[in-house]
Computed example of a mutant assay.
Amino acid sequence: MRRRSFLRAAVVGGGVAAFSGGLWTGAAVSVPNRLAEGPYGPLLPADGNGLELPEGFTSRIIARSGEQVEGTSYTWHDAPDGGACFADGDGWIYVSNSEIEPGGGVGAVRFDAGGNIADAYRILDDTRRNCAGGKTPWDTWLSCEEVGYGYVFETDPWGRNEAVRRDAMGKFNHEAAACDPVRKVIYLTEDEPDGCFYRFRPNNWGDLGAGGVLEVLAAGSETSGKATWVEVPEPLPSDGDTPTREQVSEAKRFDGGEGCHYANDRCWFTTKGDDRVWQFNAADDTFELAYDGGGDLSGVDNITSSDFGDLYVAEDGGNMEICIITPDDVVAPVVRVNDQDESELCGPAFNPAGDRFYFSSQRGTSGSSSDGITYEITGPFRH
């Protein structure tokens, strides 16, 4: 079997991107600087919204912080951050965190089958710095507080059910969450310079209110190897008590955990402090360094993937790009945002059909949290 075919076989079924071939031989490899032109071709000059896109792609602004979403009474929140899409009949819903304190919370935009905005509304209020999170297989959104001793809140994208704090998932500087339906666990990243990579094992899969066990990945200081899981003794420390990341001495440290995405037995997560992308192989509890910075992709943050097998990584800083990493190791920008150097890109997500892509510039052109902009890109995405 040719190498490309092997990589494709490993990723297409679960919609996750493969990285450098060294991962399959156990060698940690730094992905080179844009090995080839991306699958969509070069970026064209900026459009009227200030976005550089490949030929055949168009953009629109769907929301601005402090302004009512068109056709609705909902005022879009400040500092839009992590997000995800949920199928809604023939349409879909895009949820978006608000990374401010106080206030925080989550907003949502509902689209009809034609992609027109049908409604916008609030699904979580009065929380703190809701940064990233994760979508569950039972169609809820886990919104994570990026503060010391922060919590995870489970929310309803339709806004019909009240959001609930899930204490058993731990009290720490949460960033992102990714659900593994095979092992029935949820992986969690921690945004600290000496942060950890966690696994939550619910007592009842699909019911996070039934409690569970929080564990931390333990390993040496290497960039690849075998991992074990150790239970966190006190997942709910009081403010000022020993943080969860310091309770297990053998826990492996990750420099600023950010985005987290699971598919097909693998969980990909980013660390901003050292500009790395990691792969955790859930089938055999091994981990690898998949990308080691130094190329076109820098300021790694939120991540998602397409059903084709491409991974999309949003930059916090860098060149203000969203880059694609393809199954044959091409790294290239698919979006570049102009004149917003004081911002960061976040919340990348595809609609269910895979032909519309959403993301936000958290602080827009002014660099202020009150100037966030949420975009939609339409085009011939591979899916």
Results as ranks from 00 to 15, higher is better:
A9S: 13
A17V: 04
P45E: 14
D47Q: 13
D47G: 10
N49S: 11
L51Y: 05
E55M: 14
S59M: 04
S65Y: 06
Q68K: 14
E70D: 13
G71L: 12
T72C: 04
P102Q: 15
G104W: 07
G107V: 03
G115E: 03
I117L: 09
D119M: 06
D126W: 09
G133V: 08
W141C: 08
W141A: 08
L142F: 14
E154V: 04
T155S: 02
D156P: 01
D156C: 01
N161F: 07
A163G: 07
A163I: 02
F172N: 08
N173Q: 10
H174C: 02
A177P: 03
V185L: 00
E190C: 06
F197V: 00
L214R: 02
D239G: 09
G240W: 11
G240C: 10
F254Q: 08
G256V: 00
G257K: 10
G259Q: 05
Y262H: 03
D265S: 08
D265K: 13
R266G: 03
T271F: 06
T271C: 11
G273A: 12
D285S: 10
Y291I: 02
V300W: 08
T304C: 10
D316K: 07
C323K: 02
N338P: 00
E342D: 15
N351T: 05
F357I: 03
G372L: 09
E376G: 11
E376W: 06
